[in-house]
């Protein structure tokens, strides 16, 4: 018997209105709630008691959010779309094939059938000290993320502006969405709002997203790229299941500008741009953007791969991405 040790309530609202009412109710009664979509990230957290909510609010009955549409020059992705549906969708294959490829690199086929794109961009930051069994965590002092006062990576006992939780960002789909300048439709008890995806991510591994309590992302709006191509490359030990030890998305615009987004390295994704006209040669531009991306700190050892190796692989993956894009342009 492996049912979750701590009992909690479960609700599955069918409309946004029901959801907002439920959230208001929970806030009024001071009940700790969490949202769950595919639950593939939430369940291990619940089982290991990293999360101990009073109620799990499932979003899976909000069927209106399980759609992908083309509206004008935008693709509108409902956040409950599963990663496997996303990677097979005609609009995505036609206009955002690299995003479909990145979604296909997440975890395993079984997980992609369940996990959602919304869950992937909201995936909880991870650290080798917190994402362990309860027994393992009991063997060391609770860290910042476990309401403790130590970070085992930083070796610090004071949490503050300079020393924040270092749990790292691991979404595979966010880097490409960032490079496309995606925006998010958000709804919550206070009403709807729209933000840029870039504004979602914060620098603290504990509170790594800027959503307010009770808000959910309903849609991701991606402008259909014109005259540009992109590629996502991922470093993992196995092809299946692993979170990225390093993920590099590269976008090349028609005018020769290059943008790069990194995941798996830091508390938030890193995004870098290079404008072609600022460099004498194409290679100068690549050398410079590789340097900028490599300087994006791989601060602490929190993966199977040594941190030096991960850092050294950044320029390799950028060049590999650019080569793939150029090869694609030739064919």
């Amino acid at each position: 018997m492996t049912a979750l040790d701590k009992e909690f309530d479960f609700a599955r609202p069918k409309t946004i209105e029901q959801l907002c009412n439920l959230v208001r109710e929970c806030q009024h009664e001071d009940r700790h709630f969490i949202f769950s979509a595919g639950a593939t990230d939430i369940m291990p957290h619940l089982k290991s008691e990293i999360l101990s909510p009073d109620i799990v609010i499932s979003l899976t009955a909000l069927h209106a959010l399980n759609t992908i549409e083309k509206r004008g020059n935008h693709i509108i992705i409902g956040t409950l779309t599963s990663l496997s549906d996303l990677s097979k969708n005609n609009h995505i294959q036609q206009h955002l094939p690299a995003l479909g490829g990145a979604a296909h690199k997440v975890a395993s086929p079984q997980i992609r059938n369940r996990a959602t794109i919304g869950g992937n961009i909201m995936v909880e930051n991870r650290c080798i000290y917190i994402n362990q069994s309860r027994l393992n965590r009991q063997s060391h002092s609770p860290c910042f993320k476990a309401d403790g006062n130590i970070c085992h990576l930083v070796k610090s006992i004071k949490r503050g502006d300079d020393i924040l939780c270092q749990a790292r960002f691991v979404s595979d789909t966010a880097p490409l969405l960032l490079l496309q300048g995606s925006t998010l439709d958000i709804i919550g008890p206070a009403g709807p709002r729209e933000i840029k995806l870039a504004d979602l991510y914060l620098n603290d591994g504990m509170e790594s997203k800027s959503l307010m309590r009770g808000e959910i992302i309903t849609h991701i709006k991606v402008k259909i790229p014109e005259n540009s191509a992109s590629h996502y490359e991922k470093l993992t030990i196995r092809n299946a299941l692993d979170f990225p030890a390093l993920g590099v998305a590269v976008l090349r615009r028609g005018n020769g500008d290059i943008s790069v987004a990194l995941t798996g390295l830091n508390t938030r994704p890193g995004v870098f741009h290079a404008t072609r006209e600022n460099y004498e040669t194409f290679d100068d531009m690549i050398v410079d953007i590789c340097q900028k991306a490599s300087d994006f700190t791989v601060t602490y050892q929190q993966d199977f791969f040594p941190r030096g190796y991960r850092k050294n692989m950044i320029p390799v993956f950028i060049r590999r991405g650019i080569n793939k894009i150029l090869e694609g342009a030739k064919s």
Binding site: R12, A39, M43, K47, S58, P109, Q110, I111, N113
Partner: peptide, 29 residues
């Protein structure tokens, strides 16, 4: 029930025609 945390795949069942991990799914879902 292998790992009970979605890493081994042994709990795969077909849900609405697609294989998914039953250990990562609340029964009520």
């Amino acid at each position: 029930n292998g790992c009970d945390k979605g890493a081994c795949g042994c709990c795969s069942v077909m849900i609405d025609g697609k294989p998914m991990l039953s250990c990562l799914m609340p029964a009520l879902e």
